[in-house]
Amino acid sequence: MKNNKGYHIIILFCLCFLAVANVNAQSDWQVPVEANEKLSPFLFDDDMVLEGRVAYENSCTSCHGTPSQDDFTPMSPPPGDPASEPFQAQSDGSMFYKIKTGRGTMPKFADAFADDELWNIVAYIRSFNENYKQELPNMEGIVIPEYAMKLSFDENVDKLVVKVFAEELPQPEVSVSAYVMGTFGKHLLGKAQTNELGIAYVDVDPTLPGDEEGRVNVMVKATKGFARAKVEEHMVMAKATERHSAIEGRHIWSTDRMAPIWLKITFFVSVFGVWFALLFIVFGLRNIKKARKEA
């Protein structure tokens, strides 16, 4: 009882302290001007939003809740809903800075996420703002190369080989991520950077099941700054696996048509056997009628 009381007092004290120290988490968090004006080097697209969502659900939901649901954890200062007005009023750079550096109860994510991953989270938060229009950096003088990709599979080392070109020239230092497309989502095989020959290697788990011929649907993305490309291809690189129907063969629980033969024979032979005997007796009753003349 005593212990409990002490515990309560400590919590109360902490809460008061936090309340006094930080009345509003957003309003007085000063972001350096340079950071505030920083713009994303990536165009926020659906893929970024989706990846940002994965990162958000894993690292942010516990305090901020699901955006636009106002279900953030009640703490002091209130973490707030990222879909709310005060959040969305800030610049992309400000969001990026706050997530990266953290403050007080907001953790620092600089070590947890690379810059592109942080931008994914920003993209995800922005996806809740219908009026948002991404501010793009000044592109003057910058030519954005158009990537083309060639995929192949090296079965000696179980690696997916991705060659990235732009106008027939191999492109070095391009981030490549390869996915296997599942029924409900894409599974990350791996990420790699192209070497000076414009080639990136991604490990393929040889135990991954494909279709009967070992085919899987592969999707590869190549990004470098604003340049990006995406290809989707069916490739033979997984373990050939036969697909079986869950109900093939004769099962006790399957339809009547698929009932085990011994069961059908036993059932019908006994039922019809007995009824045959009964009908024999019923028809035999005529003999009793005939037999009346005998005497």
Binding site: L50, R53, V54, E57, N58, T61, T66, Q69, D71, V180, G182, T183, F184, G185, K186, H187, L188, D205, T207, L208, P209, T241, R243
Partner: peptide
Amino acid sequence: CPNGVYYFGDQNEDLVTNGTTKKTVRLS
């Protein structure tokens, strides 16, 4: 589900997708 409790997918592909985060992982 808001808490990422469920994964759902195809055993033949050995891939399941989390309903909340949409992350797809190997079932096995």
